[in-house]
């Protein structure tokens, strides 16, 4: 499941683990909507779980892509707490201009 190169079994160059900032890698899982499972969306570096969640929100849910995030270090799973959820994702709702539908496309303009 993990995309972490350190668990990689394939051939090729040996995995390098030099992490000069000392920030571990976290895998990020997002539940897109109520009723759907969390799915893997990517990874990021963060010094601890709290910052990993904050960074994951900024990085992977700028457009309300999710209602819940898990960040997973080597062994543990951490979920964003449900009661924080509304405030946690609120900033996306008032930034409608992040979606292409916000813009008026003049009559006849194609491929935009």
């Amino acid at each position: 499941m993990s995309d972490d190169p350190r668990t990689r079994t394939g051939g090729g160059a040996p995995a390098k683990t030099a992490d000069r900032s000392g920030w571990p890698l976290w895998e990020v899982f997002v539940r897109p909507r109520r009723g759907l499972a969390h799915h893997h969306v990517g990874s990021l570096h963060a010094p601890d779980a709290e910052l990993a969640l904050r960074n994951a929100r900024d990085l992977y849910t700028r457009r309300q892509e999710g209602v819940s995030i898990w960040v997973v270090p080597a062994a543990a799973i951490t979920a964003s707490s449900p009661d924080e959820k509304d405030a946690f994702f609120a900033p996306a709702a008032d930034k409608v201009y992040r979606h292409p539908t916000f813009y008026e496309v003049p009559e006849g303009a194609a491929h935009l």
Partner: peptide
Amino acid sequence: AILLAKVQDEAGHGLYLYAAAETLGVSRDE
């Protein structure tokens, strides 16, 4: 506000891509 959001997106794109590169066995720091 729009330009801020766009520039923030570009930072995000950079991070998605560094994360994709890291799955190949290099570190972002490198």
